[in-house]
Amino acid sequence: MKLKQLEGHLGGLQQFSNPKVELEQYPTGPHIASRMLFTAENSFGDVSGKVVADFGCGCGTLGVAAALLGAEQVIGIDIDAQSLEIAAENAEDLELDMDFIQCNIKNLGWRASVVDTVVMNPPFGTRNKGADMDFLSVALKVASQAVYSLHKTSTRDHVKRAALQNFSASSAEVICELRYDVPQLYKFHKKREVDIAVDLWRFVPRSI
């Protein structure tokens, strides 16, 4: 599938009808999501034929992108039942078979070694401090091959150190820097739209 096609499919997905600020629910835009999964597949071969988990899947954009690129099994995990319902509808609309689990990522009970790749757009931890690092810590335990994640560029050094030293990643590389346009979703947003710089990371977990 071509990048443009992928982006087109993702642009048609339903997004949060009633986003919850405490969960930092921001949709992953089709531009970023398509590039993230396209790179994972075409530069690293981490998607097609693999078991992919989408952590904090929200409305399922990244997971849907993985399924469209030929992942054998995609599992979306989110704490919020309403988001999962939308994600399941999105998958069904595109005739994709995906599994979903309602769970707090922090408390996920999971045998390692089955999931190849974790993709995620974690909460950036602006409301719930440390949430992004909780996600990364679990992702690096669950994935056997690679973790793709978005983090604010301003936290780059911190993310690298945490991944390598605290969570025993064997590598942590920024693949590219992207602009994440945050639409005016919540009342506290004063501007109509803001751009923040985010890094697309690829982490390799410690070999088992």
């Binding site: 099994q73 599994d99 979903f100 689990i101 009970g109 045998r111």
Partner: peptide, 12 residues
């Protein structure tokens, strides 16, 4: 939920 997913989930 498929049994593949069941095969990795545990009670935590």
């Amino acid at each position: 939920m498929r049994l593949l997913t069941h095969n990795m989930l545990s009670s935590n």
